[in-house]
Design a protein around this nucleic acid. Sequence first.
DNA 1: ACGTTATCTGAAGATCCGCGCAGATGAGGA
DNA 2: TCCTCATCTGCGCGGATCTTCAGATAACGT
Lengths: 125, 125
Amino acid sequence: MGRVLPLDGCVGGDPQSQRVALVRASVPDDAEAGSLAELFRLLGDVRRTKILYALLEVGELCVCDISAAVRVPEASVSQTMRLLRASGVVDNRREGRRVYYRLADAHVRMLLDVCREHTGHEGSR
Amino acid sequence: MGRVLPLDGCVGGDPQSQRVALVRASVPDDAEAGSLAELFRLLGDVRRTKILYALLEVGELCVCDISAAVRVPEASVSQTMRLLRASGVVDNRREGRRVYYRLADAHVRMLLDVCREHTGHEGSR
DNA sequence: ACGTTATCTGAAGATCCGCGCAGATGAGGA
DNA sequence: TCCTCATCTGCGCGGATCTTCAGATAACGT
């Protein structure tokens, strides 16, 4: 299981080791890093990304609309949405036989916004 | 190869089909969604997440310091950093025999910040 | 109650990806 | 020049994940 050499090496007696200690304190623990990574991982898929940006624009869509919009089989969309919902990225609402999905909260929206800027794309300008 | 039924179904003659057309226009194309997804995917890993948050706090770290901070073999860190660098998430700077890495730009920093809030963690307050 | 429509679920197959090891490369110091 | 330290690279294994098919479930309209 992952053995990591103790603090010898380039940080041995260096003033750097102080810095390392500082970093250790601020590095997220396994639990938190896990949550963070999971959130990112969920967005890290072309299909899911498209769906989420669609929801960002329109606000609310049912499965078959999503399917039509991103050109993906409905069953696949359903699976994807289940995944996103289980992780709290989206919420859903039933209306008759349709189920409408929407982004769960403002954080997710902000996240998507920030990243679109990073890619250099101009969304609604 | 992904066959998707045309626009029949629930959007057949509905006023909804209009909405679908709207969504189509705003959904990122394959190229853009690909970039976005790749960025997210890079962050979607516990190890990389930890490293990036470490860099967010301290600003700059060499491979062996990162290795010590997140307790991961140096070779693995090196590989990870190469991956992140190739995608423009981090930058590096050589000083003697050490190579210092830092977050590439403000967008990445903002991204990490936004997400830490989403998880409900208080970083430096 | 029946058929249709919209959505969900389970399972299998193929693919992809991260991980660590061992050796190679590059930069300094004596 | 030789030796040491920091970092990089190639390879192979194990594990996780996406995709899709086919059938189940739920909600309508008649």
